[in-house]
Design a protein around this nucleic acid. Structure first.
Length: 429
RNA sequence: GGGGAUAUACCAGAGCGGCCAAAUGGGGCAGACUGUAAAUCUGCUGGUGAAUGCCUACGGUGGUUCGAAUCCAUCUGUCCCCA
């Protein structure tokens, strides 16, 4: 199956410049996607773009991931209502390193001609003088053209700085640079990037168009739809914020739980975008799911596949075991018999001696006693207990003043449940 | 440069001297029903406390008043109109 067909049936194709299919059929093509180093880790909002590169490589083409060391210093106005604060150069550099490492998990970097590559646009922008840039890039676009971009138009009312206005020139120049130096023919991205990407194709066309056959395009754009949820809320955020790919920011357990909790209505789209299951496999899974929806076969399939890719098969297996363990009625016995490797994946929170000594009752323990992990204030903790939301070792507790004399599993663990979905294991010295 | 409007909790937005920790909607959290789903219904949603209460909060500062989110002065931010 070719790349475009693959994207089509997966619902990952929003828009592309005509002629791209011919280009892809003609030869091994090089394409890139840019990632902003605004955080030290990528999050699942970036995952759709990564999958785009993944499919691209699987179809025999060469993917390049561009880390925006330079563009990150400017700030992309797309989808932003207001001007952004700058990140310090140190932060950006640290972020770039983190992101680069993560990308390496998804793409094949040693597969011969179509090996993936990571590039950083800071490498070619750092030497660029301001005048040089104006002559090299700025001359090829009119302000009229740049103003007509959606990302700019939306900001005309509230204001946009010259810096952010220039962003599209930088991104456009990236494309041109890679076109010249890496033989890149295609830039991909989320649908919000269409404007920025076509700026690049425009620069290439104007700078290169004359000496080639001008009717034949040589630079292409392709975008993927933004992943949305059926209830209209933003995809990719959990209650505690972004879901990161980095285990330090989002534990593998939390990561797995995120996917497992996906709504039925969203699952058919998610499984197509975020997993590599084939069309036949997905249809079979959907059929199974429809017959026994309570088993949540689709959710499990996605959660397992994605967690395996991000955190590895071993960790994923443990996390699945941890999940079934915590939600089981016999959690207490299961924890008592759990292996060390399994324990390491459970959401265990160490309760410090000092904090514990300040706790008079259960309310104190699940708020201040746990560094506000479970509840941010005593008031909320008390209300949750009164609302029948809290369980200790799988038994509901309704007295906010309950004493802290619970049975400790293995002599040190206490299992705290908040609601149906959230489980914590407190560890006492 | 001149004139006008506006600033309220996570967001939107009412309140315009005491009944205001502040209506209403959204969002969030929880309970019930379920499948760790969705929809629906119910409760909660500044802190502390068992509670009367106390503390902190309606852009900043200062004032008037027994009493201010509400009135006055001033500063700051934002928006609109004229030049």
């Amino acid at each position: 199956m070719n790349f475009i067909e693959e994207l089509r049936w997966r619902g990952m194709l929003q828009d592309m410049i005509p002629g791209l299919e011919d280009q892809l059929a003609k030869e091994m093509t090089v394409a890139y996607i840019g990632f902003d180093p605004t955080a030290p880790s990528l999050h699942i909002g970036n995952l759709a773009a990564i999958m785009l590169l993944k499919h691209f490589q699987l179809c025999g083409h060469k993917p390049i991931a561009l880390v925006g060391g330079a563009t990150g210093m400017i700030g992309d106005p797309s989808g932003k209502a207001a001007e952004r604060e700058f990140l310090s150069e140190d932060t950006l550099r640290a972020n770039q390193i983190g992101i680069q490492k993560q990308l390496e998990k998804f793409l094949e970097f040693h597969s011969g001609a179509n090996s993936a590559e990571v590039v950083n646009n800071y490498d070619w922008f750092k030497e660029f003088s301001f005048l040089g840039f104006l002559r090299e890039a700025g001359k090829f676009l009119t302000v009229n053209y740049m103003m007509s971009k959606d990302s700019v138009k939306k900001r005309l009312e509230t204001g946009i700085s010259f810096t952010e206005f220039s962003y599209q020139l930088l991104q456009g120049y990236d494309f041109y640079h890679l076109y010249k130096n890496k033989n890149v023919r295609l830039q991909m991205g989320g649908s919000d990037q269409w404007g920025n990407i076509t700026t690049g194709t425009e620069i290439i066309r104007r700078k290169e168009g004359h000496d080639e056959d001008s009717t034949e395009r040589s630079a292409f754009a392709l975008t993927t739809p933004l992943v949305t949820k059926a209830d209209g809320t933003k995809f990719g955020k959990s209650e505690s914020g972004n879901v990161w790919l980095d285990a330090d920011n989002t534990s593998p357990y939390a990561f797995y739980q995120f996917w497992l909790n996906a709504a039925d209505a969203d699952v058919p789209r998610l499984i197509r975008v975020f997993t590599l299951y084939t069309k036949e496999q997905i249809e079979a899974l959907e059929k199974e799911h429809a017959e026994a929806p309570h088993l949540r076969i689709l959710q499990k399939a996605i959660a397992e596949e994605v967690t395996t890719r991000v955190h590895g098969a071993d960790v994923c297996a443990l996390v699945i075991e941890a999940s079934t363990l915590l939600f089981s009625k016999d959690a207490v016995e299961l924890i008592a018999g759990a292996s060390d490797a399994l324990l390491a994946q459970l959401p265990i929170h160490e309760v410090s001696g000092e904090l514990l000594s300040e706790c008079k009752n259960l309310t104190d323990l699940i708020s201040v006693g746990t560094d506000n992990l479970i509840f941010p204030s005593k008031g909320e903790a008390r209300k949750a207990i009164q609302n029948n939301a809290i369980s200790i070792n799988k038994v509901k507790v309704t007295d906010p003043n309950a004493a802290l004399n619970f049975d400790r599993i293995r002599g040190k663990y206490v299992l705290v449940g908040n609601g149906k979905q959230k489980n914590y294991i407190l560890s006492f010295k």
